[in-house]
Design a binder for these strands. Structure first.
Lengths: 117, 117
DNA sequence: CAAACCTACAACTAAATGGTTGTATGTCAA
DNA sequence: TTGACATACAACCATTTAGTTGTAGGTTTG
């Protein structure tokens, strides 16, 4: 099972698409928290929070380390940055389009519509 | 129905969590495309692609303008940037944590573990 | 006008998601 | 050692999602 970059992107964006998970991520980026501590903050069962933590971990957005009976979770800022890079790529694509439009406008002859083939 | 900023984030990240939608977004950031043109690129029904376009539009990542019988779709880079800003916020939270740790390390007395209350 | 084309949307299905409760296992503390 | 705590996971349920086919309306073109 090779995990492609698209697979990784699926997991990352999906993990971020739930507000509870985004909130958990904020907390564990600010500092380590046990799963219980996190669970206490939300109006849902411990198991539900634990599943959210698992989704974040599988996506690579958080890591866990054992400390006695607790599992301390910590946000991984590198993963957050990798998502930001994907968005940068999108912006780069867009900039290419603008450059192409500018090039056309700079020219003398009547600019064709950008989609003509 | 007030749409909160969390609602918006849900929609944005969810829209980005599907690889077909990310691919559509790349294309329409590079230039306008009709829904049909887009649909021709994927191995799924027109209706499926049309639904993906609808999800992207609802999230605010793309806009449509009518041109005759076609609906030309275009990527909205501002929405992409707004997602990047959310990630920046996360990184800012993380940086605060690092600063706090540094402050502790700079001090003389034995630094307590960061989670002690 | 008629036929072809582009889009939208309804209705349906299978699979994934987000929640629940219950159970099992490991660790700490009295 | 016993009991309480922390975690993991299975089984289940309701809802959402991503796909399908089919239908219908607006636009262009012959």
């Amino acid at each position: 099972m090779v995990e492609t970059s698209e697979d990784r992107a699926d997991g990352l964006f999906h993990a971020l698409s739930d507000r509870t998970r985004r909130d958990i991520l904020r907390r564990v980026l600010a500092g380590e928290h046990s799963v219980s501590t996190l669970a206490a903050s939300y109006d849902m069962s411990f198991a539900a929070v634990q599943k959210h933590v698992a989704v974040l971990e599988k996506a690579g957005l958080i890591t866990k380390r054992r400390k006695g009976r607790e599992q301390l979770t910590s946000g991984d800022v590198a993963a957050v940055r990798s998502v930001a890079e994907m968005l940068d790529e999108l912006e780069t694509i867009w900039r290419g389009r603008i450059d192409r439009i500018d090039a056309l406008l700079a020219h003398d002859n009547p600019p064709p519509t950008e989609n003509e083939n």
